[in-house]
Amino acid sequence: MPALEINNLKKIYPNKLEALKGIDLNVNQGDFFALLGPNGAGKSTTIGIICGLVNKTSGAIKVFGHDIDSENSAAKSCIGIVPQEINFSQFETCLGIVLNQGGYYGIKRRVAMKRAEKYLGKLGLWERRNEYSRNLSGGMKRRLMIARALIHEPKMLILDEPTAGVDVELRRSMWDFLIDLNQQGTTIVLTTHYLEEAESLCKNIAIIDQGKIVEDTSMKQLLSKLDKETFFFDLVEPITMLPDLNGLSSKLIDPTTVEIEILRKDNINQVFDIFSSNNINVCSMRNKSSRLEELFLDLLDNNNRTD
């Protein structure tokens, strides 16, 4: 039984905007799943429908086998949601927010208090439990939303861009927390703009664009489709002109930085050979962007061309 099963899901908003054009999606139990797409692709609409915040136009969704229409309560009990926007009361304390959420899920106060201590503690907020939520920093507010989403210990956690606007250190600690949670059996569905995040964390991936799923596969398979990569080469000494690079697409960004596009079938050693024969010394090299980012842009480009 999949953790999440979406069949032919359509959403047309009252202003006639067709946000979802019949998407199908399966997320397996225990998966760490990425749902990627540009702004306005339909990610948040999909998540909103799964969680009961958006009315669907047609289609079916099952969460751990529970239909969201006929077994709404059972389906909702399996889901924890961390939304994109801050959506808790600014006039309540951190502890109050988490305990109330437990109450909404029918969890006794005594049990909710233990879980609040556990999750607020793990997310570094227990010391600030009695502070009003409005006094927290942006990163703390995001962590508070994660603690709130876990108070009923859901089987599936959905995070809609959880690390948007969060500094690098905090983002890494949130990744570790999510990896740990996933290893304990919680299915995680993540939308993010940071493709590096999806590449590092997720086992499977779906890409949504203009209300359609344009790719639904494993991260490994998707990355194997990449037929070219762009690298930056940092040079020891400045140069004024690039040597002939056997027809490879290349650009001198500045006197000490060269950008070269290398196809999968090409041998990267040839670049070093040419540089060496021209007395050009390379001190470092790096990817221009993450591999997933290049694929992502290619897929969206293809989708736009076929429309």
Binding site: C51, G52, L53, N72, S73, A74, K76, S77, I79, I81, P83, E85, I86, N87, F88, S89, I97, N100, Q101, Y104, Y105, G106, R148
Partner: peptide, 10 residues
């Protein structure tokens, strides 16, 4: 938007 806390719950 904290009405969403209630709407997502069963």
């Amino acid at each position: 938007r904290h009405i969403e806390e209630i709407l997502v719950a069963p």
